[in-house]
Structure formats: C-alpha cells, structure tokens
C-alpha cells in the first residue's frame, strides 16, 4: 500500500445508540481483510469531499471491519452531518488507511485512560487491546447523563477498572485522587474536549507527572494530515493546478505533467525542493532548516502546502 492509497469501504451497520452519535461499521467493498491498526488510530474518511478524522473503536488485529462513531456537530463544517444523513447500510465511502497518532506505550506498567464525551472513542480501542494483551488499563470517563457513547463497551471491557461519571465535580475529585495514586511506570492518556484536556493536564502536572508519561490525542499536529485545498500557479508553464485536501503538491504537479525530482516523498531527503515566488508556504518537512523555512522562498512539495489559498512556483 502506498502513502496515497485509498480504501473503498461499504457501510455494513449504522446505529444511533445515544442521541447524536452515529456508530458505523465499515467493511472492504471487495470483502476480505482490512489493514490492521495500532490502538488509538483514526481513519480519515472522505465525507462528501471533506476529509474528517474519526477514531477507530474496533480491534485493530486482523480486522475485517472498522468501527467509528460520529458525533453530530451542529455548527461544524458539515462532515459529521453528511455522515449522519448519507451513511446508511450499503453506502460506499472512501478513506485513507488508518493512521496511528495516540498509541499505547509498550513500557507502561499501567494505562490510565481519561475520556470526556466523544473522546471515549480511541479509549475503547485501547481497552480492547489491553484486554487482548492482558495489560492493566483503567478508565475514568465523564459524559452527560443519557449521552454516554460506548458506556456499555467501556464497562464490558474494563469491568471494575472502569469508572463512569455524569457529575463533573465527582469526576474531578476522583481524577485528582487517581492522579495521586498510580504506580511508578503508569502512563496517562487523555482524550476529550479542549477544556477538559487542559484541566487534566494541569492537574497531572501539579501532581508531578512528567510530560513524557502524559499523552493526548493529536489529530492536529499529525504532521502529515490531509491539509486544506489550495491552488498553485506554474509561472513558466502558465497554468494553475488545484491541490486537493489529502493530496500532495508533488502529486498535483506530476498529474499536470511537470517533472519534479523526488525520492522519499516524506519531506526528509531534500530531493524535491522547489523555489516559491508567490504565496506563503506551510512547511511540514524535516529537511529545510528553520532559517530556510522562515525565508519562505522554497518548499518541499512532497509534504508541504500553502498557508493561504494560493502559491506561485517558477516552473
């Protein structure tokens, strides 16, 4: 499978076990095994042309189905509404292979998982793996009354090591206690709304947890996420090429028949460097020095994009 690979999936089940959360099961359109994934991985689903990331809640070992849960975001960009309205059993959907950005730490002697609201989704796949591997995992899960997505899964997977809360104060008190009372070698994983995550991070820091043992899910800084669409003008050729979200500038140039040298296609080898004569690059590579990035007059088109709607290159 290559970096730009796509999975053709078909919806095999769609339910709404709690209001506003649509749980989908997806299988390979052609049947058979799907690429396995690391616990805590997410799937970038093409939601009517918009790439949206959803945590996988199923087990990643030899999967034949993926499960995701989509929270309806009323004031979002529309991807979740699209998933709620369009993804019924039998619907086809395209996705990029699972990406790992929130993995369990192999050396952890205990996994303390803290979830708020829909942030429970990656925690569910962590729990499945922990049970399969015989590891010590504990959960504190805060959700609104009657809106606890995957509450039954959490209880079933973690048993008496799961504590569920609908009362914020009770949760905060118990969290503080739990943070004070973990064995050496415990790791803390957080997933939830920003406000909750910030509060837990602060509480953990106050209790002396080193940053290296605290993990948050990071869709954002996934350095090579799909990014936003933009256009690029090739000043010598005299054309303008569109770069879609989820596709690289390098691929767009190649499609347009422009020959650009490349090797790694991951922003590390330095082969594909291009001058920039207009627009602001969004650097995502590992090759250019900080100074070269700040200068903004070149970029690595295999991974880097435009910070605005448009770039200009002298090709």
């Amino acid at each position: 499978m290559t970096a730009g690979a796509r999975l053709d999936l078909v919806v095999t089940a769609a339910t709404e076990p709690v209001p506003g959360v649509r749980c989908l099961r997806l299988a390979a359109a052609g049947g058979g095994e799907l690429p396995g994934f690391v616990p805590g991985s997410h799937l970038v689903v093409d939601c009517g042309g918009r790439p949206n990331a959803y945590s996988l809640t199923s087990d990643g070992l030899e999967p034949t189905e993926y499960a995701i849960s989509v929270l309806l975001v009323e004031d979002g960009a529309g991807g979740s509404r699209w998933a709620h309205e369009r993804l019924d059993v039998g619907a086809r959907v395209s996705a990029r292979p699972p990406r790992s950005a929130f993995p369990p730490v192999a050396r952890a002697r205990r996994h303390l998982l803290v979830a708020g609201g829909i942030g429970v989704t990656p925690v569910v796949s962590h729990l499945r793996a922990a049970r399969r591997r015989g590891q010590d995992a504990r959960v504190l899960y805060l959700h609104r009354a009657g809106r606890g997505a995957h509450a039954a899964d959490v209880r079933e997977l973690a048993g008496d090591r799961a504590e569920l809360f609908t009362d914020r104060r009770a949760f905060t008190a118990r969290l503080d206690e739990a943070l004070a009372d973990q064995p050496l070698g415990a790791h803390l994983y957080l997933c939830g709304p920003a406000g909750l995550t910030d509060r837990v991070l602060a509480a953990a820091a106050a209790r002396g947890w080193p940053a290296s043992r605290v993990h948050t899910e990071r869709f954002g800084p996934d350095a090579l996420g799909p990014g936003d669409p933009f256009t690029v003008t090739l000043t010598r050729v005299g054309t303008t090429v569109a770069v879609p979200a989820g596709g690289s500038l390098l691929e767009a140039l190649e499609r347009a028949g422009v020959d650009v040298r490349s090797q790694c296609r991951r922003g590390v080898c330095g082969e594909c460097r291009l001058p920039v004569t207009g627009g602001q690059p969004l650097h995502r590579d590992l090759f250019l020095s900080e100074e070269a990035k700040a200068a903004g007059d070149s970029l690595m088109p295999c991974v880097s994009r435009a910070a605005g709607p448009h770039l200009e290159v002298p090709l």
Binding site: P97, L224, V268, L286
Partner: peptide, 14 residues
C-alpha cells in the same frame, strides 16, 4: 535527527 523524526512519523503499511 532528521532520520529519527522521519521514523517517528512512519505509519503502518507504508
């Protein structure tokens, strides 16, 4: 250092 960052970004199946 670059190689290490590259490896850290590596995803399964690639």
């Amino acid at each position: 250092t670059r190689a290490q960052e590259f490896i850290r970004r590596l995803q399964p199946h690639e």
